[in-house]
Amino acid sequence: MTDDVTRGWQRPSIYDVARQAGVSHMTVSRVLNGHPNIRESTRERVLQAIDEMNYTRSSIARALATRRAMRIGVLVDGPVQYGPNSTLRALESAARDVGYAVSAFTISDDEESQIDTGVVELVTQGVDALCVIAPRASSLDILRKQTTGLPTIVIKAEPDAAWHTVAVDQRAGATLAVSHLIELGHRHILHVAGPLDWYDARERQEGWSDALTAAGLPVVPSVAGDWTSDYGYEFGSSFELDDVTAIFVANDQMALGVIHGLSDRGIRVPDDISVVGFDDLPDARHFLPPLTTVRQDFAALGELALRQIIAAIDGEEDGMRHDRIEPRLIVRSSTRAPRA
């Protein structure tokens, strides 16, 4: 009876192969990915370990970037948030329509080091390309150090010299929200931002600031939140508003908390203060009051990202592209002209 049968056979992982070959898991990944800067003796040692451990040749073939596995690897930063989750589902739907599968690796807010593990796992699965959804600046700093040889698309609100990028135009969305408030007559508009390590949060903050500056209105320091309704409630129930007559909140979840916190203080929305959110959650129209917000077309974003991914796989892209989708302002009952 073999040891495999005695202990119950498990498919060997890339880490098992690395231990057997006496190298790092990243070296194994580079061998699987056909990386040129690997010594031949090291490559042979890794391939020998693969053979000895029955790490199947089909897995290796699928992991080579030059072969077609009809699979896209997706790194999702902050998967519990509405935007990243909706983008992933949209990408999966678009991929299915053209015969591609999606393998996702999620990264929690406090686990930036998981990016390294995620890239290795996805490459080992034999993906044809990588897509990164909703990255934080710190996440991309880690990713820049990776060498996979795979086409990589980043869902990112601003261009990047290293990758193809696609995004809903976050800055334009913020401009729509603030311009709406200005047109209603508001002159002191506060911003509750998302975590400023997130590119989307930065773009929304800059759009708010630029719109106020263009209108000749004061730009007071924004408040950085954490995307959650709990933070919005804490802010709404305690922050001194002074002359503020309107608040642009960086996402609908925080906006819900803000409205709740203001209500507990006896401050009425929109009679005493107007509130605008961002995302257009499915329930935003049922908030009390129904929320004015910025809608992102995640289905269109998923289709656009997939088109770029397939073009990159096919070698049809020359240079780095940045494509954007325009958002829409959805006006509901949480905004009105300020009281005289």
Rank of each mutant, 00 (worst) to 15 (best):
E240S: 13
F248D: 03
D230Y: 10
V244K: 07
S237W: 00
D252W: 14
R268F: 01
Y233N: 05
R265Y: 06
D243R: 15
L241C: 01
G261H: 11
S229C: 01
D242I: 09
S238V: 01
D252N: 03
Y233F: 14
A224P: 00
Y233C: 01
A284Q: 12
Y231T: 02
M254S: 10
V220R: 13
D271S: 14
M254L: 13
M254C: 06
R268T: 02
L256T: 00
S274G: 02
A255M: 10
G261Q: 10
F248H: 13
L256Y: 14
D272P: 00
A246W: 15
Y231F: 15
L241V: 01
V244H: 02
L281S: 11
D226I: 09
D264M: 07
D272Y: 09
D230H: 10
V220C: 05
L241P: 00
I247G: 05
V249L: 10
V249K: 10
D252I: 04
S238R: 15
G225T: 09
D264C: 08
P282N: 07
A250K: 08
S229L: 11
P221R: 06
W227K: 05
A255V: 11
V276P: 10
V223M: 06
V275W: 14
N251T: 08
D279N: 11
I267T: 08
L262C: 04
D242N: 15
D243W: 05
F278D: 04
A246H: 14
A284S: 15
D272T: 05
D280T: 08
H260V: 02
A250G: 15
D226H: 12
N251H: 08
D226R: 12
